[in-house]
Each structure stands twice: as structure tokens, then as C-alpha cells.
């Protein structure tokens, strides 16, 4: 139970790993159709995650999905795996306990902008600092959707929400830079329309030994889109590409659709900081060796 889960590097993933993907193998079909609104980007993000999981050949029995509260928190429910729908803002803390106790599990956290950056902000920075082998997928739809559309830490300036009737005046968080500054070993960001890229970024994050933070720019078509005239569902999805600048995959630097010149997509950080779980277990081995010596 104590051996650590290992995964394929990007180079080792074959075309077949990626191609033979049937999403329904990974879903709890009796719960469908899911509860999300028409056009909600979270569904696309979920596909990318499951595809990455498939490409990595992760055994569903060994997969633990930990989520918080909000629309993002409900996404995990639909995955046919060990799913934990925990409390608001705390999935990273739950996941930390779970991963430390069960290093053989692949622990993936699904969280949202409010869950991860507002109520759970402290857990994000400390999970990043610890660099424990967890993959954190933050679905950023720039709004509190489930509670009816209140302003969130990533709501762009001047957006109308139910709690900013005159437009948002608060500045936003750049979650990736936050995670990077706090020490996350792997940081990436992608929009949902670039599904294959998103899949690859997640797949690499899953394989990364350490804390991987992936921000998915997702559309909230109902409460965010409608209130701000962001267009129909397809228009919102397309809106993501319009402002994208194509470039080579790995070092692409692309302006964020809603915040020109401030946000990049792609893999933003890859470092080889020590993974906390491994360091901890090494310490345990040393302590136990010393103890045995003492007993002899």
C-alpha cells in the first residue's frame, strides 16, 4: 500500500493511450444527464480530465477525486472512481490527509475559483508550498455559480454580478502566479476549447511528482454569461479562441481572452522541487533505522 503511484511522462504516452478513449467508461452513467447548466464549461473540463486519466492509464480503483463545494465541487460526483465531495474550500486539506495516508492513490482535487482562491486560499498556498503529489484542477468560471452568481476573486473588472450591481471594482487574482509564488512544482493554464492541449497539460500534471496546479478557464454560460451579455454558449466557447494567439505548444504564451496581456496559457512552471510525501517517508525510514540500531 505504501509504494508510490507512478505515471507516464509525456514522451511515453502513445497515440493509442490517447485515442482509444471512451468517456462513458469513466462516468457514473445512472446519474446522467448531469446537473450542470446548458453550455457549462465544466463538462468540457471534465472530459479533458478523464481523457488525461485514460491516457495515463490510471486505474479507476486507485483514483481519488476530492472536491469542494460549488458547481466545481459537483463535477466529481459523475466520475466512476473514489469520489469525495468535501466542505467548502477544504478539498486540498482533505486531499493532503488522504495522499499522506495512502500514497498509492492518485489524488486529484477538483475545485473552483471561489472554493480554491477565496475560502480555501490558505490551503492552496500551503499545498503548493508543501509540494505533495496532488493534482489540483481549478475550474475558473469567474463567478459563484451555485449560489446564484456572486462576485469571485477572479471576476474581471466591471463585470456585473448579483453582489456587484454597479460592476466589479475589486482586482483579480492570477491563480497560476499565486500557485507558482507559493511553490507549486507544476503550473499550467488552458481554456476549455483547446481540449487536446488541456488534456495534455492535465496528463503531464498527473504524472508530475509534486503539487500540480492547473487552472481551467471555463465558461459559466448561465449566471455569468447572461448577466454580462457574453453571448450564447457557442459564442462564449468561440470567444476563447478569438483572442488566442497560436504558438508552439510548450512555450506558448497566449493572452488570456478576458484580460489581454496579463495571463498566459500552457505549461507555465515545471520545477524539480522535492515532493513532500517522499521526503516524509525518507525521514520515517531514517527514524526507524535509528530506532532499530538503538534496540540492538
Amino acid at each position: 500500500m505504501n509504494e508510490q503511484a507512478t505515471l507516464k511522462s509525456k514522451e511515453d504516452m502513445t497515440q493509442d493511450d490517447i485515442r482509444n478513449f471512451e468517456i462513458r467508461d469513466y462516468l457514473r452513467l445512472d446519474l446522467f444527464p448531469h446537473f450542470m447548466c446548458p453550455g457549462c464549461g465544466h463538462g468540457i473540463a471534465l472530459r479533458a480530465l478523464l481523457w488525461a486519466i485514460h491516457a495515463q492509464g490510471i486505474d479507476k480503483d486507485k483514483l481519488a477525486i476530492v472536491s469542494g463545494i460549488g458547481c466545481s465541487g459537483r463535477v466529481g460526483t459523475y466520475i466512476d472512481a473514489n469520489t469525495y465531495h468535501t466542505t467548502h474550500g477544504r478539498p486540498l486539506a482533505f486531499a493532503t490527509g488522504l495522499k499522506m495516508a495512502r500514497p498509492d492513490l492518485h489524488v486529484v482535487v477538483i475545485t473552483g475559483d471561489g472554493d480554491c482562491l477565496a475560502i480555501g486560499g490558505n490551503h492552496l498556498i500551503h499545498a503548493a508550498r508543501r509540494n505533495l503529489d496532488i493534482t489540483c484542477l481549478m475550474l475558473n468560471n469567474e463567478i459563484y455559480g451555485m449560489t446564484g452568481g456572486q462576485v469571485s476573486p477572479t471576476t474581471p473588472a466591471d463585470r456585473f454580478t448579483t453582489t456587484t450591481p454597479a460592476g466589479n471594482m475589486e482586482p483579480v487574482f492570477d491563480a497560476c502566479r499565486l500557485a507558482e509564488a507559493a511553490g507549486a512544482g507544476y503550473v499550467g493554464r488552458e481554456v476549455t476549447i483547446h481540449l487536446p492541449r488541456l488534456r495534455d497539460i492535465i496528463a503531464e500534471g498527473l504524472a508530475y511528482k509534486g503539487f500540480s496546479f492547473i487552472e481551467v478557464m471555463s465558461d459559466c454560460t448561465e449566471v455569468n454569461g447572461r448577466k454580462n451579455d457574453l453571448g450564447s454558449s457557442p459564442e462564449m466557447v468561440l470567444g476563447q479562441t478569438r483572442a488566442m494567439r497560436p504558438s508552439e505548444y510548450d512555450n506558448n504564451v497566449v493572452d488570456h481572452p478576458f484580460r489581454p496581456n496579463s495571463m498566459n496559457t500552457g505549461v507555465l512552471v515545471r520545477s524539480n522541487r522535492p515532493e513532500y510525501g517522499t521526503s516524509y517517508r525518507n525521514m520515517v525510514d531514517k527514524v526507524q533505522a535509528l530506532q532499530q540500531k538503538g534496540q540492538k
Binding site: 462513458r24 448531469h34 450542470m36 446548458p38 453550455g39 457549462c40 487536446p196
Partner: peptide, 10 residues
């Protein structure tokens, strides 16, 4: 198929 948020297309 990829962009259907509801996995309705396969």
C-alpha cells in the same frame, strides 16, 4: 464530441 459539455455525442 469534444466540446459537448454534456457528453451527449459520441
Amino acid at each position: 464530441e469534444w466540446l459537448c459539455p454534456d457528453f451527449a455525442i459520441s
